[in-house]
Design a protein around this nucleic acid. Sequence first.
DNA 1: GTGAAAGCGCTAACAG
DNA 2: CTGTTAGCGCTTTCAC
Lengths: 347, 347
Amino acid sequence: MTIDIQNLTLEDIAEKAGVSRSTVSRVVNEHPNVSEKVRTRVLQVIAETGFHPNAAARTLASQRSSMIGFILGRTVSSFFPDPYFPQLTQGIAQACNQNRYTLSLFLVGSREDEAMIFPNVSRKGLLDGVIVQSGHDDDELINKLITSNIPIVVVGRPFEVENVTFLDVDNVEASRQAVAHLIGLGNTRIATIEGSANTTVSIDRRRGYEKALAEAGLPLDEKLIAAGDFSEESGYRAMEALLPHKPDAVFAASDAMAFGAIRAARHAGLRVPEDIGFVGFDDLPSARRFEPALTTVRQPVSEMGSKAVDTLLQIIHEGAASQAATIVPTELVVRNSCGAKAKGLAQ
Amino acid sequence: MTIDIQNLTLEDIAEKAGVSRSTVSRVVNEHPNVSEKVRTRVLQVIAETGFHPNAAARTLASQRSSMIGFILGRTVSSFFPDPYFPQLTQGIAQACNQNRYTLSLFLVGSREDEAMIFPNVSRKGLLDGVIVQSGHDDDELINKLITSNIPIVVVGRPFEVENVTFLDVDNVEASRQAVAHLIGLGNTRIATIEGSANTTVSIDRRRGYEKALAEAGLPLDEKLIAAGDFSEESGYRAMEALLPHKPDAVFAASDAMAFGAIRAARHAGLRVPEDIGFVGFDDLPSARRFEPALTTVRQPVSEMGSKAVDTLLQIIHEGAASQAATIVPTELVVRNSCGAKAKGLAQ
DNA sequence: GTGAAAGCGCTAACAG
DNA sequence: CTGTTAGCGCTTTCAC
């Protein structure tokens, strides 16, 4: 007897179990109003037949799909080699598994992609909600999504914070702490290499830098601030610009830029960390392996992902999140590049 | 006049355009049998109203969803820091965008995850097909999926090749080439560090190693073959085991293992590449930055992803792929760690 | 070329 | 606690 597993419907199960379709539906959806006797009988038939309800029909009738989307916007250039996005994705995926939600991934490459994808990620698609990674000025997409009325959570602080639930790491405090560490090591001419302009990430990290200097009573010298774009190359060039002003330490807004900057410092004949100390941001896998091992800021990326899912589900189920903004703390990982170990000052 | 964009249906559009629901459906689905006059009128109404058909209803009625799944199996440990998976995912996502398909991502963490997810990725879910990254012995999942009758493409050669359409890089040829390069540099005692046992990847890379030795008439010495698991740590330990046998070059089946092995060689007082040369596999972002820059094998990962999608769509639309197996070539990237540059033999 | 009508498989009032 | 009855919004024969 070959059962055609494909085409079993609620009705078939109902017949086999001698009950109505509604009852089977109730059992499947764990409604309370089913007698224990009937429930077990139905569950047995379901187990025997390997029945599983048709997702499309369920979605159509109930207006919810148990699917959420994760959108990496147009301005989020690359899904790699920076492991930030993979890690975030993994956190989101795991949380989806735990909550029995399915994850759809949208990597928006161009403006055309964005337009094409929009119907699928707005209220018309079959998603119950979306998580959006905020890039530079993706606020346009975010606003359109909000207008479409779909539950949404933004990862990374967007420029416009009105009516948006978002999560972000505490970039200001993370940077303040990193620079304070450099100050604690006795440095007084601390430079910084900034990330891409027009990103809230860069703005916040710059603010943390300024805050640390102010707290220590150190002057803010514009000559010690160089522009970058998070990339290794930009770190190298920024360092070249910084060198004439003789910084004794550098806080780079990304590990990649720190790598580039260290390369430039060495080309100029400086020893790291003896002559000049460095702190990065991200804790890339290679930061540990780098010579000297890079002191950097670690972000709880995977946790951010799962928190984003929890927050989104809260919005989906309860209409709103318990808090509009969630700011998660970071961790300064002290290694060798800052000079702490060399000076016997490691934590 | 505020139009409630949410609840527009085919019927509404039909009414506004003065035609029947079927006609609107035909227009939306680009059926040929619609007069030009009617078509433009309907399209105009659609544009004015911002209508977009409900995905669930469409899926239910037509039995296809324009969604495919990408499954990273239980034995595929981590989605990062190895950029292989992110890159593959990106390739798949881009191809999905191009073909107007939506991508669902399944990161299977445990056996429970696998069981839970199964209904969603088998014929019962709303996916039109799935791409599965083959891990060690995920063949169980793959076989279950095949039995469920859903179109499937496997990335990475599975152990059981019967009835499976798969894509893989040419691991044998890639390794053969890498080792042949080392031989060409004058080395005669070439060791290899293998990846995780019970993976077709490891088996194939080992075969390439043996093939290169055989072609050069070099003996196969079991003492020059060490076990690893692709990780940096395992590379370090494998190298320690290899050192007493005095290899003059090492082919590691992953860049991470090459990094570990080089670290071990240096701890033993050897200079790289002067005393001993290394070739890795993967071309991690840090391979270029490593000191010495790592000679390694680059795989067209992103292309694999898009090819996987093309192949899957072929199966979905035509019932079968034009070829059961697609093997894509790799590229040997010669840098400094192999000693080619030092010996003035760079390509 | 167009419309009418019958579902796709399920959920969710509403009775009872 | 259980069954009956409408739909959910779309596709797709089948007539005309």
